[in-house]
Design a protein around this nucleic acid. Sequence first.
DNA 1: TGAGTTACGTTTAGATCTAAACGTAACTCA
DNA 2: TGAGTTACGTTTAGATCTAAACGTAACTCA
Lengths: 192, 192
Amino acid sequence: MADPALDVPAPDVPEPGAPGSSEDPRGVHSAADIATAWQRERPGAPTESIEIVTPIWWLGKLFADDRDRALRAAGIDAATLDLLSVIRRSGPPYALSTREIACRTLVTAGAISQRVARAERDGLVVRRPGTTGRRSVLVCLTAEGHALIERSVDTVLGREARLVRGLSDQERTVLAGLLVKLMADVRRRTGR
Amino acid sequence: MADPALDVPAPDVPEPGAPGSSEDPRGVHSAADIATAWQRERPGAPTESIEIVTPIWWLGKLFADDRDRALRAAGIDAATLDLLSVIRRSGPPYALSTREIACRTLVTAGAISQRVARAERDGLVVRRPGTTGRRSVLVCLTAEGHALIERSVDTVLGREARLVRGLSDQERTVLAGLLVKLMADVRRRTGR
DNA sequence: TGAGTTACGTTTAGATCTAAACGTAACTCA
DNA sequence: TGAGTTACGTTTAGATCTAAACGTAACTCA
C-alpha cells in the first residue's frame, strides 16, 4: 500500500534564493504545498482532496508504525491484537465468524483465515463449528487470548493518548466530528 | 499492518431489546462506541485518542483501497505512482537519491530499492551515480515515467475529490487545518 | 428429489514490505 | 597514511497481504 495522496510536483523553477522555504527540514512537503504545486502544473485539476487525504494517510502510518514498535517490544503483533479485539468487542460469548471478522476489520477473508490459524496455534482462540448459516465457523477467545487483550490495552491507549495531546479537548472534538462525518460519506460512496 | 485504533469491547450485557441500536448496519462500531465501551470495561483508561486514531486509520484504508482499485484498472500500481510522484515533486532535474525518497515516503530504504528496481525494469526511471555525498545513487525519471504520472494524475485526483465531496468547503478547511496541526505534533513526538 | 446455485472457509500463487545483514566508498584523525 | 568509522544502496530471510481458485455444505425449485 503506497501513499494514496498523490504526490506533488514542485515549481518548475525553484527559487535558488529561498530553497525549500515552506518545506519541512526533512524535505517533506506539506499537503498544502502539494495541492498548490499540482494547481500550477495542471490548472483546474481537482486538488481539493489533497489537503484531506494526504495528512490522513501520513497520520495513519505514523500511528501504526508507533504502535507496531510498542507491540513488538511487548511480544505481540498488531494483526493479532486486532483479531482478538474485534472478537472481544462483539461481546459475550466472545465468538465471531470469519466472515464477520473480515467485514469488521476491512481485511480479506483469506487474511483472517491466516490470522486465526496463527492465533489458534498460539492458543489465543479456538475454532468451533457455528450453528447459524451455511458453513460458518465461530472463532472464540480462549482465556489466554482474553487476558492478552486486557494486558495490552492500557499500553497502546496510553501511547496513543500521548500522541494526540497536542490538540486541545475542543480541537479533538471538532476533528473527531468531521472525521466521522467524512467516514460515513466515504463508506457510502465506495460501498464499504 | 492492522487497525492501530484499539478495538472495542462491547457491553457485558447487551440489551436484547435493542441490539446494535447505535451500530452500523454492517456491525461496525463507531469510534465513539469504542471509546465508551473501553471506558466501561476499564474505567479511567486513556481513551481520548480513539475518536481520532480509529477514523483516521479507517479512512486511510478506504482511500487507499479505492485508489488501488482505480489504478489497477489503469495498469499501474500505487507504489510505483508514489515513487514517480515523489521524484516529480522534487522539481527539475527530476532526480532524487534512494535515501531521500525513503525519507519522503515513510518507507524503508530497502523497499525503495526494490521499487526502483521494478520501475527501472519497466523503463520508468534510470539510476545514475550521484555527485554529492558518499555513495549516493540518483534515481531519475525517464520521459516515459514522466508521461505516466501526467496521465494518471487527473484520474486519481478526480476520484478522491468525489470522495470528499460530502464535506463543505469550510468543513474541509477546518479539517485540513486540524490534521496538519496534529501531524506536525505527532511527527515531533515520534521523531519522524 | 436431485441438479444447480449460493455462501461460506481455506489454500495457493504471487507481490510487497520490514529488519537485518552485507558490501563498499568516502570520510576522520592520531 | 592507514585503521577505523560512517553513510550510503542492495540483498536476503521471513512475514503478511490480496485475489483467485477450491472444496463443501446448505439451500432452491422445477
